[in-house]
Design a binder for these strands. Structure first.
Length: 507
RNA sequence: GAUCCCGUAGCUCAGCUGGUAGAGCAUUUGACUUUUAAUCAAAGGGUCUUGGGUUCGAGUCCCAACGGGGUCACCA
């Protein structure tokens, strides 16, 4: 039996106890179960790509490494599959080559990580494999991993049996998910590429990537409930940022003419398929530009991202084909109301809007503000129709306390939101840089807040001082990265595009 | 937060109107030197999420809690 140490030791099941015994047996045989390195020369995928039946000796010495995923023992020969970051490759192990070590192979398990030196060949059944000359244990695994069998038919279609599918376990133990369902890595690789293409797009144009505080004494730049934390040395409460907007604008005041940040934001609200308490947003601000310019830039940026990451200008999401070909549709908000409700809602009073909502069978709280009613009608009757990328422009000023008033359209601001597949993906405006107007708008917000809406913004005096120093005309844009990734990777839950989605603690 | 569904072996799942647990893979032992969801033979493995209740008897029925998923509400 294994001597259990005095350190905290979890309950072990029979399989785990057996693996511990194997570990000790291997040690007693002089095998280091956790050596420091291995000189890996080839990825599985590289071998599968480079092997040629015309020159079978070309890959005469390869060093591969990975996790044992399948074991087929046939007496004095065995076939294993190992999995590395590029895929799987079969290893052929023969007693003739490994001698005494072959007999200790029973101490190796699915889940162990090994290194193999050998030559590449094609088996009688046609599978490109590595014929092992030497085998090295690189990491002994003490816990069984989910084993999903797969069958590949003549056409190359893969059928999975007993795939590791429990969503809770997949999210809580993402490492097991990544091992057992390696295809999900594609989503995360694409996520990284989406961000890297965007970063390059901005960098090439001379805009500076910056970092601004996550811990903020006042939260602003959006309407949302924040997380609160406490700084002991200062003995003050701080908020985890809900947006970085107000800090990026301070940098524009400071003289940078283009800044962006890929920002983890935190919102203390409900969780569902499209909301995780922490999420990633891109925000970018460019001086001397307005929202029309920003629409062009957004279009070009997203078109570039889609072409580089997906390879085409169209993306299949669920059953819908989304076209990112330029130009995207542009429509004024109140024109869309007319298009989808048959009504002109512009300039209507709260009571008139309430009546309109009733006529349109949109249920709203009778006490709701005019803006809430407009918002509700939009999300019920307009938004679901915005499937192909659509810029919705010119919002009511009350909905947009940080956006610049439209010069010719009274009551509206220079703002757009980009909708794709019925969801908001981007939000942008010509930034309000009139300090008097900005102060009034924030004071309005503060009043709404005092009336009980804890999502309304507060007056950030330091921000207002910055604007009073003078911010040049500036266009700003925010893009919800997680939702963009969902669209481009055909995932309908944010939990599938975030490695470690927020979960309730177990037990 | 409201509502519906789910929680059985390491994984994927059965378990009918209540009679104290089953399969496949994984694991163990044996056979097999080009197999591939390898095959063949045998074996071990479960306080049925937790706590109450009804009952002679609960995985199964009832209540509550915990965890997950879906829908709605709030929001990006």
């Amino acid at each position: 039996m294994v001597s259990l140490s005095t350190m905290t030791e979890p309950q072990r099941n029979d399989q785990e106890l057996r693996r511990l015994e194997e570990l000790h047996l291997l040690r007693s045989m002089g095998v280091d179960p956790y050596p420091t390195s291995f000189n890996k020369t080839h990825d599985a995928a590289t071998i599968l790509r480079d092997f040629s039946d015309d020159a079978p000796d070309a890959l005469n010495t390869v060093h591969v490494a990975g996790r044992i995923m399948t074991v087929r023992r046939m007496g004095k020969a065995s076939f294993w599959h190992i999995q590395d970051h590029s895929g799987r490759i079969q290893i052929y192990l023969k007693k003739d080559d490994l001698g005494e070590q072959y007999d200790s192979l029973k101490l190796y398990d699915i889940g162990d990580i090994i290194g193999v030196e050998g030559f590449v060949f094609r088996t009688r059944m046609g599978e490109i494999s590595v014929h092992a000359r030497t085998l090295t244990l690189l990491t002994k695994s003490l816990r069984p991993i989910p084993v999903a069998k797969e069958e590949t038919d003549e056409q190359g279609n893969v059928t999975r049996y007993d795939a590791f599918a429990d969503k809770e376990l997949r999210y809580r133990r993402r490492y097991l998910d990544l091992i057992a369902n390696p295809h999900i890595k594609d989503t995360f690789v694409k996520r990284a590429r989406i961000i890297s293409v965007m970063r390059r797009f901005f960098d090439e144009r001379g805009w500076l990537e910056v970092e601004t505080p996550i811990l903020q004494p006042l939260y602003g730049g959006a309407t949302a409930r924040p997380f609160v934390t406490h700084h002991n040395a200062l003995d003050v409460d701080l908020y985890l940022r809900i947006a970085d907007e107000l800090y990026l604008k301070r940098l524009i005041v400071g003289g940078f003419e283009g800044v962006y940040e890929i920002s983890k934001n935190f919102r203390n609200e409900g969780m569902d398929k499209t909301h995780n308490p922490e999420y990633t947003a891109l925000e970018i601000y460019v001086a001397y530009k307005d929202y029309v310019w920003m629409m062009d830039m957004t279009e070009e940026c997203l078109n570039t991202v889609v072409r580089e990451v997906v390879g085409t200008e169209t993306v299949l999401f669920q059953d819908v084909e989304l076209s990112f070909a330029r130009p995207f549709r542009r429509a004024k908000m109140f024109d869309l109301y007319r298009e989808h409700t048959g009504k002109d809602l512009r300039g209507l009073s709260r009571e008139e809007l309430l009546a309109a909502a009733k006529e349109l069978h949109v249920g709203v709280d009778p006490k709701a503000s005019a803006m809430k009613i407009l918002d509700e009608i939009f999300s019920v009757l307009v938004q679901p129709h915005l499937i192909q990328p659509t810029f919705v422009t010119d919002y009511p000023v009350e909905m947009s306390p940080l956006a610049k008033a439209h010069p010719t359209e009274a009551g509206l601001v220079e703002r757009f939101e980009l909708f794709i597949n019925g969801n908001e993906v981007a939000n942008a405006f010509s930034e309000l840089n009139d300090p008097i107007d900005q102060r009034e708008r924030l004071e309005d917000q503060a009043r709404i807040r005092a009336d009980g809406d804890d999502e309304a913004m507060s007056v950030d005096e330091d921000f207002l001082q910055a604007i009073e120093v003078g911010m040049p005309p500036t266009a700003g844009l925010g893009i919800g990265i997680d939702r963009l990734v969902m669209l481009l990777t055909n995932n309908d839950s944010i939990r599938d595009v975030v490695f470690f989605p927020q979960m309730r603690p177990e037990h």
